[in-house]
Every structure is written in structure tokens, then in C-alpha cells.
């Protein structure tokens, strides 16, 4: 131990260490950027603490929430609806993102603005729009009702609301990805015999993998966190944000804190696993 400490001491005073210290103290440090940035990180950390600390002080609430079938069902509905929303966005949003990245039509600006609308609307307004569109007498709700698909207070309603609010997150991320694929690659693919569709599938799509995955993650996160738009079309089946709000009003802070803590924990695990599994996706350099 003594030898280690001595070794460390000699390292700290070594010429290399002194040079490194001089280098960072002579204006090369990132401290000026880290300090203001850490205000934001600190706020997030504190927000997590105010949820987590009381939960650990009263573990009974956590145990109660974890074993509550209603909580389990709300999580199941939320996550499943989130996955369905991302699936719909992947099928419809990916071609839209590609068309926007490659098109030079004068109408493109209008389409881009429409795509961004859910981003700037208050969530209640988004909910109202979804409700008016998908209610049983709505423009889309009525014909879908004719084939037996109802949205009001039903699972499809949750998915519809989630899709609506997550559109810009997915489409913008994926469009940026397609924009980074040089059109020359597609041209060469076509000169080699690929149709436009095959060039898209075999060249552009694989090269946009990272952006598609990132867009999906953003959209999923946005979707499962939606509250206002969801409750306006489908209060039931209860999603997790609705349940937290309900428990906050009826069971108090401690009960809602425990559910919120589980949600945060699950999301952290899911985000971490997702990032770990996709860390090599879309990286094609032998050197890295």
C-alpha cells in the first residue's frame, strides 16, 4: 500500500503530470463549458433525488406499487402503445423522411412545417386535435369505426395520440440521417442496376440505421411520456402518466412518487440496454 501511495505521489509530481497540468491551466480546459452545462445536469440529478430519496425512506410504498396489478397493467399498456406508435412511425415516417431529404419540390417547406406542428402545440391542443379527428364521429374515427376500430377510451386512441405527438421527433431525426447519405451512393447503386427502391433498401436505409434507431428512441420516449393528448382521447385503459396523476390526486405524493420511481428506473434500464445493443449499429469502419 505504501509503495502504491509513493508511486502515486511520484506520478503526481512527475514532469508528465506537471506538463499536463500546465496544458490544462493554459486555457485548454473545457471547464468554461462544463460549469454552465452542469447547472442543467444538476437540475436533472436533483429532480431524480427528490423522487428517489423519499422512496427509499418509505420502501413500503415502492413494494406496494411494484406489486400493484394496476401499475403493472399501466406499464404494459404504456410501453406496448409506445412500441406500436414507433412501429407506425417507422413504416410511414421513414419514407416521408427520405422523400423530404431528397426532394426539391417547392411544397417541401409546407410539408416540413406541418410535420413540426405537434412540436410547438400545447399538448392539450394536440389532444383536442387527436380527439376531434379520431372520435367516433370524427373525420378518421367514423370510417375506422365502420370497420370496428374505435379510438375513444380504447388502446388505438392511445397509440394515435402517441403517434401524433412523436411524429416530428422521428421524422426529423431520420430525415437528417438520410440527408447525410450522399446522393452519389444511390446514383452509383442505380448505375449498377438497382432500381430507386432497391437503392433505398440496400444503400440509404442501412446507412441511416443510427438515425433511425435514435429517432425511434426519441419518439418512444416522447410517446410513453405523453399525458394530456392521451387522456383526451383515451382515459382508459390507463397509461402510466395518467395513473401517476390519478394516484397523486387520490393517494398522495408518496404513492405517485413510488410509481414515478419505477418508471424512471425502467426507462433508464431500457435506454441503457438500447444504447448498449445499438452501439455498433451503423458503424462500418474497420479501424474503430
Amino acid at each position: 500500500m505504501a509503495r502504491t501511495a509513493a508511486g502515486r505521489g511520484s506520478l503526481m509530481s512527475s514532469p508528465e503530470h506537471r506538463l499536463r497540468k500546465k496544458y490544462w491551466s493554459s486555457g485548454n480546459s473545457l471547464a468554461a463549458f462544463w460549469i454552465p452545462g452542469m447547472i442543467l445536469v444538476g437540475i436533472i440529478a436533483l429532480a431524480l433525488l427528490v423522487i428517489a430519496v423519499p422512496v427509499f425512506q418509505n420502501p413500503g410504498y415502492l413494494a406496494g406499487a411494484a406489486s400493484d396489478p394496476m401499475v403493472f397493467q399501466a406499464f404494459f399498456v404504456t410501453f406496448l402503445a409506445g412500441f406500436c406508435a414507433v412501429g407506425i412511425l417507422a413504416i410511414t415516417g421513414t419514407p416521408l423522411a427520405y422523400a423530404l431529404s431528397r426532394s426539391d419540390t417547392p411544397w417541401k417547406g409546407i410539408v416540413e412545417t406541418l410535420v413540426d406542428i405537434p412540436l410547438v402545440l400545447p399538448h392539450t391542443v394536440a389532444g383536442l386535435m387527436v380527439y376531434l379527428l379520431f372520435m367516433s364521429r370524427g373525420l378518421l374515427g367514423a370510417p375506422f369505426g365502420g370497420i370496428g376500430l374505435t379510438f375513444e377510451d380504447a388502446f388505438p386512441g392511445i397509440v394515435a395520440a402517441m403517434v401524433f405527438v412523436a411524429i416530428p421527433y422521428y421524422v426529423n431525426a431520420v430525415r437528417e440521417g438520410f440527408g447525410r447519405v450522399p446522393v452519389q451512393l444511390e446514383n452509383v447503386a442505380r448505375s449498377l442496376g438497382a432500381s430507386r427502391a432497391r437503392a433505398f433498401i440496400t444503400v440509404s436505409l442501412p446507412l441511416t440505421t443510427r438515425h433511425i434507431l435514435y429517432g425511434a428512441l426519441l419518439a418512444w420516449g416522447r410517446a410513453i411520456g405523453e399525458f394530456a393528448a392521451v387522456i383526451m382521447i383515451a382515459y382508459f385503459p390507463v397509461v402510466i402518466s395518467t395513473l401517476i396523476y390519478y394516484r397523486f390526486n387520490t393517494g398522495g405524493i408518496a404513492e405517485s412518487q413510488a410509481i414515478a420511481f419505477i418508471l424512471i428506473l425502467l426507462c433508464l434500464v431500457l435506454f441503457f440496454v438500447f444504447r448498449f445493443l445499438t452501439r455498433r449499429a451503423g458503424v462500418y469502419d474497420d479501424r474503430s
Binding site: 446514383n187 438497382a194 432500381s195
Partner: peptide, 16 residues
């Protein structure tokens, strides 16, 4: 004709 039907090879400066 679309590019895939022309039977012309193409090579860019950055080789793409």
C-alpha cells in the same frame, strides 16, 4: 431510361 437500364458504369471522384 432510368440509370439502371442504361448499362453505363459511373465512378465519382470520391469513388462512392
Amino acid at each position: 431510361l432510368p440509370p439502371e437500364k442504361r448499362g453505363i458504369g459511373f465512378m465519382y471522384q470520391d469513388y462512392s
